[in-house]
């Protein structure tokens, strides 16, 4: 494809990214570095601040759960799920904006989202994190890494691998326009299990890969091998998702009050 077409594709995906994802990397980094000039996030660093900060956490509550009877850890976990379900909706809208995606076989669209969405969410989490903690709840809260590590097992094991990945991923210094293309590449993976018609998916991905390669050359001229380094991250991501799904399976078996959001259940069932 012509360079002009590849640049147009990059612009289109960046615009869709800005449209569907409320907390951009630029905004998150401004909050984390204290450069917003507005509200600083509420810091959750222990159980007391968790309870104080719950008023900021999340927007929608899960009905049918008696909040009085739940311990804070589990209640927080349910809030995270509710936000994750909303994030899946945002990623779905972004996927639909990728040129050619909605023309794919509908079963394949479902498969691409089922296998790609958690990988996308983990990549999108990276800009919200630094080595000390993570922004949550649209940047209104900063939750410390130490606090997450102090939760009881297996909750304490959930976020640590994401921190380790994110701290390394952030050294690549992608910006939001790079991220938009990388997310599209992840979604358009032609090797997901059960795809019916791989060829058109691979063709779409190839075009987005060309656009990403050009974007990185123009946007990061001094960063050698950035394109190759970024593609290698896709292998790490699959392992993180596999481990995450296994942890959720463990939670389902061990936690009596465990409630898994129906959308997340759909995605994780028979995933890996």
């Amino acid at each position: 494809p012509e360079a002009a077409d590849l640049r147009a594709l990059a612009r289109h995906l960046y615009e869709a990214y800005l449209k569907y994802f409320p907390l951009t990397k630029a905004k998150a980094r401004a909050i984390l570095s204290g450069k917003t000039g507005e509200k600083v996030p509420f810091v959750i660093h222990d159980m007391k601040s968790l309870m104080e900060g719950e008023q900021f956490i999340n927007c929608r509550q899960i009905p049918s759960l008696d909040h009085q009877q739940q311990v804070s850890t589990l209640r927080f976990f349910h809030s995270c799920q509710s936000r994750s379900a909303e994030a899946v909706r945002e990623v779905t809208e972004f996927a639909k904006s990728i040129p050619g995606f909605i023309d794919l076989d509908l079963n394949d669209q479902v498969t691409l989202l089922k296998y790609g969405v958690i990988e996308v969410l983990i990549i999108m989490m990276s800009p919200l994190m630094n080595k000390d903690g993570t922004l949550i709840s649209y940047g209104q809260i900063f939750m410390t890494r130490e606090f997450l590590k102090s939760l009881r097992k297996p909750f304490c094991q959930m976020m640590e691998p994401k921190f380790e990945f994110s701290v390394k991923f952030n050294t690549l210094e992608l910006d939001d326009s790079d991220m938009a293309l990388f997310l599209a590449v992840i979604i358009l993976s032609g090797d997901r299990p059960g795809l019916l018609n791989v060829k058109p998916i691979e063709q779409l991905q190839e075009t987005v890969l060309h656009s990403l390669e050009l974007q990185l050359k123009l946007n990061h001229p001094d960063s050698l091998q950035l394109f190759a380094k970024l593609l290698q991250k896709m292998t790490d991501l699959r392992q993180i998702v596999t481990d995450h799904v296994h942890l959720i399976e463990l939670l389902k078996k061990t936690e009596v009050d465990m409630f898994l959001h129906p959308l997340l259940q759909e995605i994780m069932k028979d995933l890996y």
Binding site: S82, A85, R89, T92, K96, I102, N107, L263, E266
Partner: peptide
């Protein structure tokens, strides 16, 4: 596959109104 993933399917099909999550 569509049957096993009703909410995902619905999200893909509804271009304007998001399903009640």
């Amino acid at each position: 596959l569509k049957e096993k993933h009703k909410i995902l399917h619905q999200l893909l099909q509804n271009s304007t109104s998001p399903v009640d999550l």
